[in-house]
Nucleic acid binder design. Structure first.
Lengths: 211, 211
DNA sequence: ATGGTTCTTGACTCGTTCGTCCAGAAAGCT
DNA sequence: AGCTTTCTGGACGAACGAGTCAAGAACCAT
């Protein structure tokens, strides 16, 4: 059946939604992020968004589907953001990498609510029970690794990182350090510790031999 | 009041417990580990241990207290285990460090239930709501860092790691990598990726200049 | 054996939360 | 304006899970 026609009438002939779907998703993300999946009630989200539960369920289907949607958006935004932070010419590739690593440390340290990253939190809580979430997380980290690898390759072309190193391996290591920084931050590590890790990680990346 | 006497009678004059407290804690850990805090029901634990809920509540007080107890035990055991793995003479310090890093990668990869580490999982879910859990996690990672730093210092004395590096900084980096490996493992990274990270991390540690 | 105390069991209470439903409101088309 | 359809919002239902309680069992000391 044509998606714009039902029972012989055009679907557009009806009351339009009053709320902004994206705004609701943002609010829901905020809630899930702050409290986790299980600890967040649908009533919370309804109240926070000002929507009635009927609208919420009508638009998103249920708690699990809503979370998946939020998680999906978050992962997409995270990859996009990383892509933006790391894109540019070879001559600035190392500076961008350094800036990103330090930025993650700083923002993790500044995260007084100690909420960490929704990617980590959602994965920890749901990955083994929800295949969709697990898959999405996997795709996301793979994409992040690829972006880091591209940037590291650019660093190599520009002579900032040893040419004989495998960019994919280094990217995986950097990614692990980034995730580790977040995990340690959530566990209460001090800002100095986190920024120290960022600096040390960048310092130990193999440099090309002095010429 | 003397702890062995109540109302004029010796406390030992009563029915002793039929269950092994440690066994119950182990089972509870298993459950919390597999399902997380919120998703694990006290009825689950009661059924899994064969205890009635009354006994459970009588012995441990409640869900939160039980979890704290389990978490506490887990953290203590984790630090003890690390301490054991890293203790020994200077000449084997690097081998022990290498073995530990590889062991974490291997065991994370082998964790088919993708449950990760209870320390990470519990922290992610509860740290911001439960001050006791947050504090315990903080103390635990600090202890782990100190153990790693001791081992790295031993490596330096033995000439396996550059003497001018700060062992505390390197220890923090290694710890971040270890936590990162677990986080990535939970997110579905392949065994090759994880073992690759372990190898790369060890490879980039600063070596003393060749003499 | 007896009495005193603690342990055990599982049914019960009570609050909480997911999801549904329905009556009314709002909008587009004719 | 009138009709049809979807959106809205809150009351409702049902299930679920944490924690309680009371009656009986088990054990120790005398």
């Amino acid at each position: 059946m044509d998606e714009r026609v039902k029972n012989g009438y055009d679907v557009s002939m009806a009351r339009p939604r009053k709320f902004d779907e994206q705004r609701v998703l943002d609010t829901a993300r905020e809630r899930f992020w702050a409290g986790g999946y299980a600890a967040t009630r649908m009533d919370d989200i309804a109240e926070a968004t000002g929507l009635g539960k009927g609208s919420l369920y009508g638009a998103f289907g249920g708690k699990q589907e809503l979370f998946r949607r939020v998680f999906d958006d978050f992962c997409g935004a995270a990859v996009d953001g990383l892509s933006r932070q790391l894109s540019g010419g070879d001559e600035d590739a190392y500076a961008r990498l350094s800036a990103h690593v330090h930025a993650v440390a700083a923002s993790t340290a500044a995260d007084t609510a100690r909420r960490g990253c929704l990617l980590a939190k959602g994965t920890a809580e749901l990955a083994e029970h929800d295949e969709a979430v697990a898959k999405r997380a996997q795709v996301t980290i793979e994409a992040m690794r690829a972006l880091l690898a591209d940037d590291i390759a650019a660093c190599q072309r520009n002579g900032d990182i040893a040419a004989d190193a495998d960019p994919g391996e280094l990217a995986a290591l950097v990614l692990a350090v980034l995730r580790g920084i977040e995990a340690l931050g959530k566990a209460g590590a001090s800002e100095e510790t986190l920024t120290g890790i960022a600096s040390t990680a960048l310092a130990v990346l193999p440099r090309p031999p002095a010429r």
